[in-house]
C-alpha cells in the first residue's frame, strides 16, 4: 500500500477509479432492476413507470446544470468584481 510516495492513496489510483465506475454502473443497474421486484407506488399516473425515478433524477440534474451554465454567462463576474466596483470612485 505504501510503496508509491505521492499517489499512494488507494482512492487516487486510476485502477481503483475504474473499479469504482464499474461499481457505480452496477449499483445503478441494480436500483433499476429492483423495480421488477419492489413495486413503487405512483401518485399521479406516470411516476410508477419503470425507472421513472432514475430518468427523472438524471434529466432534472442535466436541466439544472444547463440552466446554471446559461445563467452563469449572465451572472458570473470576476471574484474581485465588488472590490473593483468600490474603487471606481
Amino acid at each position: 500500500m505504501n510503496d508509491l510516495p505521492k499517489d499512494d492513496a488507494w482512492l487516487a489510483r486510476p485502477s481503483s477509479i475504474r473499479l469504482l465506475w464499474k461499481v457505480l454502473w452496477g449499483v445503478l443497474a441494480l436500483t433499476v432492476a429492483a423495480q421488477l421486484v419492489i413495486k413503487i407506488k405512483g401518485y399521479f399516473g406516470i411516476d410508477d413507470w419503470f425507472a421513472f425515478g432514475a430518468v427523472y433524477g438524471f434529466l432534472a440534474c442535466v436541466a439544472m446544470v444547463l440552466v446554471a451554465k446559461g445563467l452563469g454567462y449572465l451572472l458570473k463576474r470576476d471574484e474581485n468584481y465588488y472590490a473593483a466596483e468600490d474603487e471606481r470612485d
Binding site: 457505480l24 423495480q35 433524477g57
Partner: peptide, 27 residues
C-alpha cells in the same frame, strides 16, 4: 427504491457533466 434511483442517477449526472462544472474564479 424511488429515492435511490432518483439520487444515484443524479450522482451519475454529476460525474458525466463534470466538464461543464469546471470551477472558475468567479462570483
Amino acid at each position: 427504491l424511488f429515492y435511490l434511483q432518483l439520487l444515484l442517477f443524479s450522482g451519475l449526472a454529476f460525474f458525466l457533466l463534470l466538464p461543464l462544472m469546471r470551477r472558475t474564479l468567479t462570483i
